[in-house]
C-alpha cells in the first residue's frame, strides 16, 4: 500500500497523455502501416493484405523518384544552410556586440511566423518574372546588377531555392541553440587553451567546437525532421505542382485527388521511416548518455 502511494499518483498524472498518445499517435501509426499493406486503392473496397507490394511498387512511379529527389535536395540545402548561418550568427553574437538582445530578437522573430505566412511572402519575393516583369528579389537583383533567377521554377535547382524561406525562418532558432551552446563552454577551458598557446581560431577548433557537438546534433535532428515532412511551405509557395513535388504533397494528392488510401498510407509510412532514421539513433544515443552519467 505504501509503495503504491509512491508510484500511483505519478502514473495517474501521466495516464491521460499515455492513453492519448497511445491511441492518437502510435495507434494511428499502426493503422497507417496496416493500410499501406493492403490493396485498398479506392474508398469503397475492403482492402486485402498484400504485404509490402505497395512499398516496392511505388518505386516504379516517375513522380515518386522526382519527389524523393526534391526532398533530398531541399533537406541538404535547408539543413546545411540553416546550420551554417545559425552558427555564424551565434559566433558573431558571442563576441559580445552591443544591443545583443535586440539582434537576438530580430533573428528569432521569423520563427514566430507560420510556414504558410512565410511561404506566401516568399512566393512573391521569388517570382520568376524577369526584365520588365520582374518583381520581388528579381527586381532587386536587377537594380543592383545581379543576375536574375527562375527561383523555385528552375527545373534543376528549384528545390534549392525553395529551401531559402525555410533557412530564413529557422536559422534564428539554430542561432539561439548555438548561442546557448557557446555560453555553456566554461571560460576556464578557453583560458587554459590560450595559456597552452592556442590562437583564437585554435580555441574554437579544439575546444569550443567539440563541446558544441551535442547542440549540433540536436539542431540537425530538429531541422532534419522538419525538412523531410515539409508540406505547408511548399503548398503556400507553389501549390500542388509537380515542379516542386515532395512526398508530403504527393501523399495529399494520392489521398484527396487520386482517392487512393493505400498509396497515401504508403507514402506516409516512408515519410515516418525517413524521419525515424534521424530520430532513433539520437534517442538511442541520448538514452545511453543518460545511463552513463
Amino acid at each position: 500500500m505504501r509503495r503504491a502511494r509512491t508510484w500511483l499518483p505519478g502514473l495517474l498524472l501521466v495516464a491521460p497523455s499515455i492513453v492519448a498518445i497511445g491511441v492518437f499517435v502510435y495507434g494511428m501509426l499502426g493503422w497507417n502501416f496496416r493500410l499501406a499493406m493492403t490493396d485498398k486503392h479506392d474508398e469503397v473496397s475492403e482492402g486485402k493484405f498484400v504485404g509490402l507490394d505497395n512499398f516496392a511498387g511505388i518505386w516504379d512511379l516517375p513522380r515518386w523518384h522526382l519527389s524523393v529527389n526534391h526532398a533530398i535536395m531541399f533537406t541538404v540545402v535547408f539543413v546545411l544552410g540553416a546550420l551554417v548561418l545559425g552558427w555564424f550568427l551565434a559566433f558573431l553574437m558571442e563576441k559580445g556586440i552591443r544591443g545583443e538582445g535586440t539582434f537576438r530578437a530580430i533573428y528569432l522573430f521569423p520563427m514566430a511566423i507560420s510556414f504558410v505566412a512565410t511561404g506566401i511572402v516568399w512566393r512573391w519575393l521569388m517570382n520568376s518574372g524577369m526584365g520588365e516583369r520582374a518583381v520581388g528579389l528579381n527586381r532587386l537583383f536587377d537594380a543592383i546588377g545581379l543576375p536574375q533567377w527562375q527561383w523555385f521554377r528552375d527545373p534543376d535547382w528549384g528545390m534549392a531555392a525553395m529551401a531559402l524561406p525555410a533557412i530564413w525562418q529557422m536559422s534564428g532558432y539554430v542561432m539561439a541553440l548555438f548561442l546557448a551552446g557557446f555560453r555553456g563552454v566554461p571560460e576556464e577551458l578557453r583560458e587554459a587553451a590560450r595559456v597552452d598557446g592556442c590562437g583564437e581560431w585554435g580555441v574554437y577548433r579544439h575546444v569550443v567546437l567539440p563541446l558544441l557537438r551535442p547542440v549540433t546534433l540536436s539542431a540537425l535532428i530538429i531541422l532534419g525532421h522538419i525538412s523531410l515532412k515539409v508540406f505547408d511551405l511548399i503548398v503556400a509557395v507553389s501549390g500542388k505542382q509537380i515542379i516542386t513535388d515532395v512526398p508530403a504533397v504527393f501523399m495529399w494528392v494520392a489521398v484527396f485527388d487520386s482517392h487512393d488510401p493505400a498509396k497515401g498510407a504508403t507514402i506516409a509510412s516512408y515519410i515516418v521511416l525517413s524521419v525515424a532514421i534521424f530520430v532513433i539513433p539520437y534517442l538511442v544515443w541520448s538514452v545511453r548518455k543518460e545511463r552513463r552519467s
Binding site: R63, L66, I242, I243, D257, H259
Partner: peptide, 23 residues
C-alpha cells in the same frame, strides 16, 4: 473522374519538365 484527373494532372506536370511526348 477525380482519380483519372489526378493521373492526367501528374502526367502533364511531368511532361512540362521532360517534354517527352511518348511518355
Amino acid at each position: 473522374n477525380q482519380p483519372w484527373l489526378a493521373a492526367i494532372t501528374e502526367a502533364v506536370g511531368l511532361f512540362i519538365g521532360s517534354k517527352d511526348v511518348a511518355a
